[in-house]
């Protein structure tokens, strides 16, 4: 039997799925053991048990100075910035994507401009954002928008262009105006694809968020990681990294579920 036709069974599949996670954990654990055996006060690879203890402390115990649980504050601040940035981008991308995809005049005006703007490295203009929008929340949200909006607009407008012309013409023969075509034919078919694109752009969004927080901030997940880096507090950094990974994974899962629940017709075509 060819390799391409061999399917793992249910048990094997689950085991294979767990394997890379287990291997990574074991490799870390062994490395940590070796370093700690040589130097018990080594800070680079803290033992898993140390990380677990730190995590518990971070999630439950308030900070002695401010009397607040910092991790939750960091999470709230970061998620707020992320949701604002991604949400505004998704909204603008949908509106502009429909306009660019449907209206030849808007396409002629904006398509080239968006293509050029999307080539600007967002981090390169971060200083400009700090100067123009200050060091507050606004500049961080704007960085996320600058980072992912051009990609989302290009993607959404292409998705509109991908809708078969036959379908648009059919709507025209039913007497639909441009507005009705946009609202009843294009937009409903665009939304499930928007969710897909947002899922893809969550990675870059986190990148820009943490970059902005690392450079100038007073609270936030990225800020905390770069703050405790000075004390080589690897246990704190690793806890935050795992926490961010979990948050990102849950967001992706939530969007995937939303897409399935809200757009049953996309499932029907599978």
């Amino acid at each position: 039997m060819r390799l391409i036709n061999r399917q793992p069974g249910v048990a094997l599949k689950a085991a294979l799925m767990a394997l890379p996670f287990v291997l990574t954990f074991v490799a870390y654990w062994i490395g940590s053991e070796i370093r700690l055996a040589e130097n018990p006060s080594d800070k680079l690879l803290p033992a898993p048990s140390t990380i677990a203890a730190t995590a518990e402390r971070l999630f439950t115990e308030p900070d002695r100075r401010s009397d607040r649980i910092l991790l939750w504050h960091d999470t709230a601040a970061s998620l707020m910035r992320l949701f604002l940035g991604v949400g505004i981008s998704a909204l603008l991308a949908t509106i502009l994507g429909v306009l660019i995809g449907l209206l030849p005049h808007v396409r002629a005006t904006l398509a080239g401009f968006v293509a050029v703007v999307s080539m600007i490295p967002p981090l390169a203009i971060l200083p400009i954002l700090f100067i123009v929008f200050g060091l507050g929340e606004l500049s961080k949200v704007v960085l996320i928008i600058v980072g992912i909006l051009p990609f989302l607009i290009r993607d959404q407008s292409q998705r509109v262009l991908d809708i078969p012309r036959e379908m648009i013409v059919k709507a025209e023969t039913l007497g639909a105006s441009s507005l009705v075509i946009a609202l009843r034919v294009v937009l409903p078919q665009l939304l499930p694809r928007l969710i897909q694109s947002v899922r893809l752009s969550l990675g870059p969004a986190w990148l820009f968020l943490i970059a902005a927080e690392a450079i100038a901030s007073e609270v936030g997940l990225g800020y905390r990681i770069f703050l405790v880096r000075r004390f080589l507090a690897m246990d704190v950094i690793l806890t935050y990294v795992l926490w961010i990974t979990l948050l990102a994974f849950l967001m992706d899962l939530a969007l995937r579920t939303l897409s399935r629940k809200a757009f049953p017709w996309t499932e029907a075509s599978l």
């Binding site: 036959e166 059919k170 023969t173 039913l174 017709w265």
Partner: peptide
């Protein structure tokens, strides 16, 4: 000058709306 209500059309494919 453009397709309208007086002309009905059925193509080989993509003639119905998949999201309805």
């Amino acid at each position: 000058v453009e397709p309208g209500l007086d002309r009905g059309v059925v193509f080989q494919k993509y003639s119905v709306f998949p999201h309805m």
